[in-house]
Amino acid sequence: MSWEGIALGLFSLGIIGFGFFWVIRMEYYLGYLWWPYPMALGILFILVSFFIGNEGWSALLGITGGSFIWGATELKEQAVRAELGWFKYNPRRKPDPPGLRWIKKIKAPHL
C-alpha cells in the first residue's frame, strides 16, 4: 500500500484552493487582461516537469502548472463577478500588462 498518490491528490486540492486565492487577488489588483502570464507560467511549469528526473517532483510541478492554466481561464469570469457585486470591486485604474495590444486581440479564455 502506497500513500504517495493520495499525497499528490491532497496537494492538488491545496494548489486548487490557492488558485481561488490568487485569482481573486490578481483580478483585484492587476485585472483580467494579465491572463496570458499565469497561463505561460503554467505551461512553463509543465515543460520543466518533462526534464525533472524525479517522478514525484515532476508530478508536483505538473499539478502546479495545470492549476495555473486553469487560474488563467478563471480571471475573466472573476472580473465579471466583481462587476456584478459578487466580489469586491477595485475602482482604481489597473496596470496595463506588457503586450496589451496583442492580448486584446485574443478573447480571454474561460471554462
Binding site: S49, F50, S67, W70
Partner: peptide, 23 residues
C-alpha cells in the same frame, strides 16, 4: 529521457477542474 509524470498530472488536474466547472 523525458519524464511524463508531470504532464499526466497536469492533464488530470486541468481536466478534473474543467469537469468540476462545466460538468
Amino acid at each position: 529521457m523525458l519524464q511524463f509524470a508531470g504532464f499526466w498530472m497536469a492533464m488530470v488536474t486541468f481536466l478534473g477542474i474543467w469537469w468540476g466547472h462545466v460538468g
